[in-house]
Amino acid sequence: MTAVPTSPAPLTKKDYKTDQEVRWCPGCGDYSILNAVQGAFAKLGKQLHETVIVSGIGCSSRFPYYMETFGFHTIHGRAPAIATGVKTSNPALDVWVVTGDGDAMSIGGNHFIHAMRRNVGLKILMFNNRIYGLTKGQFSPTSEQGKVTKSSPLGSVDYPFSPIALSLGAGGTFIARGIDVFGPHLEDTICKASAHKGTALVEIYQNCNIFNDGAYKGFTEKEVRDERILYLEHGKPLLFGANKDKGIRFDANFQPQIVTGADLDKAFVWDETAANVAPAMALATMSEGEFPVPVGVFRRREKPNFETGIQAQITAAKSKKKESIRDLLFAGEIWDVS
C-alpha cells in the first residue's frame, strides 16, 4: 500500500466533469445523480487522483466515464468484487462502486451481499430503476410483480425484493436511500455515505423515462411527495405529511402503524445507529401503497473494516518476522550434496 498525500486543493463541480459526451437518454434520472455526486465530491473536496470509481454493466455503469477520477468500467455484477481487490490492496484509496438493480441485485447479488457482510470501505451507489434499461426493458429483481415487459408479456411472476432489507440482512453497516429528483437530499446522503468508514450503500430511486417511466411518480410528484415521503432523521420522530401531522409507530409485533392527532407523540423516534435491526427492517419492508416511502439513513453502525483487519495482520506479521528470499527457500529439511 502507498500513503496517498492529502493536500486538499479547492475543487468545484466542474473539475469532476470529463471531456466525454454523456450518453444517457435525454431526461434520464442518471443526469441528476451525476450532478449530485459531483456536488457532493466538490463539497467534500475529494482529490481526483485519490478517487476510484468502479462500475459493472448497465446504464448506470457508464458513470465512471463522466467523472474525472480513476475509473474502471468492468463486467456485469462484479464491481463490488473488483473494488474489494482495489480497496484491500490499497486502503488509502477512496473507492466507489456505481451499479444498478440488475447489476447488483441480480447477476452480482452474491458479490453485493458479501461486500456488505465484510464491511469493506466501499461506497456503493445503486441506481434502482426497477427495470433493465440497457437491454431494452426486461423486468428486474426489483420490478413489481405483474410487470408487463418484452420478456414478460403476460406480466412477471417473480416477486421483487427490497435492496435495503437485503442489505440489512447481509449485515450492512451503512444503508440509505435517496431519490434522483431530490437533488439536495441525495447530495447530503452521499456525503453521509462518504463519511462512513465501512461499506456504505445508497439505493437511489432513479426514473428510466424510456422503459419504466413514472415508476416512482406515485410518491415523488410535487403534489404528493409531502404526504408520501418519510424522511428518516436521526434522533427525530418518524413524521410525515405537509404539516408533519402523521407519524409511524410500531405495534407489539413490530408492525408499522400510521398515527395521527393525539397519538402523534407515539411516533417512533428514529435511531439510525440502533443495534436492533428490526425497526429498519420494518421500514424497509412496509407496503409502498399503504405507507409513506422512507428516504435517508436506515442504518449506520461502526464496525472495524475488512481491509484494515487484513493490512493489520500483514503489518504485524512483517514486524514479527523478517525473511530473505534465501531464508524462504532454504527452509525445512534441507541437505547438501557435494
Binding site: T74, A81, I82, A83, G85, T88, S89, N90, N110, H111
Partner: peptide, 14 residues
C-alpha cells in the same frame, strides 16, 4: 468469480 475479480482489482491498484 469474485476471486479473480478481486485479483484484477488488486492489479489495477498496483
Amino acid at each position: 468469480i469474485a476471486a479473480v475479480c478481486s485479483a484484477i482489482g488488486a492489479s489495477y491498484s498496483g
